[in-house]
């Protein structure tokens, strides 16, 4: 699971009003190289919840993202490379996603989050 996916996932348990961001429980992280796509990064920059990405990348052991951003940073290749790496190249291979409101644990095995709910959660 990439941090892009983490930034779009939300706990959808019935009654939960703020299911985002899911807290990361990290057991194993892997890195996989991905082709650089500046258009995609520019498009994602406006969608991403920056603090959630920074916190998640730190939980995964990557501390190079700045705490604050502004649109002018998109002109910096150095920034784009860090953004690209954090968003697409870091994978949570084993661990879990924790609902911030209920503490419900969504397992992540072999890089795949299981977001299915139980009957009493829908």
């Amino acid at each position: 699971m990439r941090l892009l996916t983490h930034n779009m996932l939300s706990s959808n348990i019935k009654g939960v009003t703020s299911g985002f961001p899911l807290r990361l429980e990290v057991e194993k992280v892997v890195e996989k190289q991905v082709d650089f796509n500046a258009d995609f990064l520019n498009n994602m920059f406006v969608k991403i919840e920056w603090k959630a990405l920074v916190d998640a990348s730190r939980a995964m052991g990557y501390a190079d993202l700045p705490d604050q951003t502004e649109p002018s940073m998109l002109d910096s290749d150095e920034f784009l490379k860090k953004f690209h790496h954090a968003l697409l190249e870091l994978h949570l291979e084993e661990g879990a996603l924790i609902c911030p409101e209920t503490g419900r644990r969504f397992p992540v095995n072999k890089g795949i989050p299981n977001m299915l709910l139980h009957e009493d959660e829908v």
């Binding site: 699971m1 996932l9 890089g111 795949i112 299981n114 829908v122």
Partner: peptide, 29 residues
Amino acid sequence: APLINICADRGHEVVVADALNLPYRTGFG
């Protein structure tokens, strides 16, 4: 999950989820 495992083995970014209750933030895609 078995179909999603096949996707993941091919290197795709995937999640096990129900189409009636998508675990995605509103308006992200």
